[in-house]
Simulated scan of single mutants.
Amino acid sequence: METRLIEVKTGRSEVVHDLTPQCAAFLHETAPDRDGLLHVFVPHATAGIALIELGAGSDDDLLAALRDLLPADDRWRHAHGSRGHGRSHVLPALIAPYASIPVLRGEMALGTWQSVAFVDLNVDNPVRYVRLSFLAG
């Protein structure tokens, strides 16, 4: 298995961050012309990985839906950090902290409009990490 930890700078705002270029570069370096699986994993308790169309408003729609489902208010029992921080700990139950993507001949076999996105509502941690792993077939 080939693996790499990448840094994602999210700043202090909720984000849907496109990881597709970093995933493609990782595969280009570690799996040229190989088949297998790309596993994308977030080693944090407050973030997730989504396969979603980015741009065209979809990323903003996702954040708006998550704000509706998980409001940043004082209802959360897990209550340290910024207001509503507990919602970030619920997020991985809705958007898993991982995704596995088929790799064919060194390329992700994504659908036409699919991208690999890091989703983070936690405004308390401006730097995050994502582990990319290639498992050869």
Rank of each mutant, 00 (worst) to 15 (best):
M1Q: 10
T3H: 13
L5R: 07
R12Y: 14
S13F: 07
V16D: 02
D18R: 06
P21V: 10
Q22D: 15
C23F: 00
A24N: 11
A25W: 13
L27Q: 02
E29M: 02
P32F: 11
P32D: 10
P32Q: 10
D33N: 12
R34H: 09
G36V: 06
H39V: 12
V40Q: 05
V40P: 01
P43I: 07
P43V: 08
P43R: 06
H44R: 06
A50N: 09
L51Q: 06
L51N: 03
I52K: 03
G55P: 05
G57L: 06
G57D: 06
D61R: 13
L62N: 06
L62K: 08
A64D: 15
A65W: 03
R67C: 10
R67A: 14
L69I: 13
L70K: 05
L70Y: 04
D73F: 07
D74P: 09
D74Q: 14
H80T: 12
G81S: 07
G84Y: 01
R87V: 03
R87C: 09
H89P: 09
V90Q: 05
L94W: 13
L94S: 07
P97Q: 08
S100K: 04
L104D: 06
E107R: 15
A109H: 11
A109E: 14
Q114R: 09
Q114W: 06
A117T: 03
F118W: 05
F118G: 01
L121C: 07
N122C: 05
N122W: 00
V123I: 15
V123L: 08
N125H: 11
R128G: 03
Y129I: 02
V130I: 13
R131N: 07
R131T: 01
